[in-house]
Design a binder for these strands. Structure first.
Lengths: 333, 333
DNA sequence: GTGAAAGCGCTAACAG
DNA sequence: CTGTTAGCGCTTTCAC
């Protein structure tokens, strides 16, 4: 067995509770005793057992982070930022991948609930009803979806989408296609609404197309429909879809941005490294991860009272190389 | 407070120990009692508290997974596979990012050690000495580095590197550059040794160049050196470096594979999506993640006795579009 | 097959 | 400021 509080107490000639206090409420211990205990603990290599502590305090100092797909380049920066922020606040984080499967998501939440002080739900696939039922078991913060009454971190794609549509319109594109994402995706709905409004405002046509899949495969298989739509500008659900689309268009002899202008979402690594460099909408995923951790910790420590917070993070368009003036249209001044 | 074993006991008219057995040793309970307890537990929404269980059993059913950089596309598939494998075996996993910082790595291991049954160390930056010291606190499995006496999962880059060098030689490249990785990287050493031997065997020149950084920036800033080296074939530490290099070369008016052939390592998403599609060496990261979990669990359950295991996973060359015959050389039959 | 009792490592009143 | 006592939720002998 590892060294416990009892070993330290014995070796430093004090009672266990004094050792306990040395670690969890140092100011209640005389400097002299404290130093002695600390020295002994150090020497013995003592580490408080957090699980045991959790049993009495009711605080595990652990968080759960549940994402749909770790391998989707959208998530790693968020995961990285979240676990870093948590660590700085002395929390550890369980990361679990639901494989886009709502049932698994629910099961994971339930399994984890006893072991964490709160759960970060990123782009959950669970129904709102289910989420509201589960919240009795453990505090949540939801990222990238709006659930009534829960603290939420939203990345305001609408902003970026409007800018994107206006950008395309300014380049002379009169017909724009929107390759939207999986049904049930909050982001996809937001994009749809913002794009519709912006297209209306800019006086351009908007075709809404639905790929199978929020990945390069989805984009690839949507290429035919895009080509037939007559659109010269395309806004994609994410960078992966955009990259797949570009590939699919190329297979049809269409070039980007020569024949069509394409815009992605996420500002992901593959998009930045692609040729042409992808024009895209930034998603502040790292900031969202940090903010979500802070909101969760606040909810945990405040005991879930108070108005549920809603953090809206800004997105913006980054113009790179995959968009240019429509054929026959003059470059804007 | 959540519902405990005591609530279930009371509600089903049995002693707590019977409820306990129903969950942890069902065969010791009569079918009748068991069903009743189960039904009551279900109704009450009871979930065993794993932390409390850990206190008596000494098994947390948690694992730690420590990686250098979650955002590096090499890791997400490994993380995903590892946590999935763990989940199937009823384990949860803490994921922690060390930011390539050995001190942080050590601290994370120590903090996590009491809370997990074992730790997966991926591409650790810690010294061997330190790792050996820490192993007293918690069982390890090391991925992508060889530490004497510890269970290890290695991806045999050497294999792929030999194939890569031979591939370049067969295409008529007489001078090959190796853009190796950070010092202290086991993979980089392996690549170096294998490349040297293979170049020797194939009768081609090998230049070894050291980029700053195992990322696209490293490749970008190595472009000048590569161009000056006179090499017509380049093997890079990873896909990111390769992609950065290609970009840097292009800025110098050099095209790939027209002027130089470039090979990466990892078979990562950005490489697959790039144009030209990157010729690369597969790293079976997902398999490594699964295998590492199994080795760790075996070590944990065997009590760390027995010969430390060494799993060597195969790598292979995937020829895509970034390599072609050297200028003036005929395509091989 | 089930109950009683002790204890895992730690914290939290309560005394003193 | 420090020791005493009880107990967190669960498992595990040991009886019966």
């Amino acid at each position: 067995m590892a060294v416990t509080i009892r070993d330290v107490a014995r070796a430093s000639g004090v009672h266990v509770s004094t050792v306990s206090r040395t670690f969890s409420a140092p100011h209640l211990v005389s400097a002299e005793t404290r130093n002695r205990v600390l020295a002994v603990a150090e020497g013995l290599g003592y580490r408080p057992n957090r699980a045991a502590r959790a049993l009495t305090t009711g605080r595990t100092h652990n968080l759960g982070l549940i994402v749909a797909d770790i391998a989707n380049p959208f998530f790693p920066p968020l995961i990285k930022a979240a676990q870093e922020q948590a660590r700085e606040r002395d929390y550890h984080v369980f990361v679990a991948d639901t494989d886009e499967n709502p049932l698994l998501e629910q099961e994971l939440i339930e399994m984890l609930s006893k072991q964490v002080d709160g759960v970060l739900l990123c782009s959950p696939r669970l129904s709102n009803r289910m989420i509201e039922r589960l919240r009795a078991q453990v505090p949540f913060v939801v990222v990238n979806r709006q659930v009534k009454g829960l603290p939420t971190v939203l990345m305001d794609v609408g902003q970026g989408v409007r800018a994107a549509v206006e950008h395309l319109a300014a380049l002379g594109h009169r017909r724009i296609a929107l390759l939207s994402g999986p049904s049930g995706s909050w982001t996809s709905e937001e994009m749809h609404d913002a794009a519709t409004a912006a297209a209306d405002g800019a006086g351009v046509e908007l075709d809404v197309l639905r790929p199978n899949d929020p990945t390069e495969r989805g984009g690839l298989s949507a290429a035919a429909a895009v080509a037939e739509s007559g659109a010269t500008g395309v806004l994609c659900y994410n960078d992966l879809v955009a990259l797949g689309l570009i590939e699919g268009l190329r297979e049809r002899g269409l070039t980007v941005p020569g024949d069509l202008s394409v815009i992605g979402v996420d500002d992901s690594l593959p998009g930045r490294l692609n040729r042409p460099k992808l024009t895209t909408i930034t998603m502040p995923t790292a900031a969202a991860g940090r903010m979500a951790v802070d909101l969760l910790l606040a909810a945990v420590n405040a005991g879930d009272t108070g108005t549920p917070t809603l953090a809206r993070l800004e997105t913006r368009l980054i113009v790179r190389e995959s968009t240019t003036a429509a054929a026959g249209a003059p470059l804007p001044a």
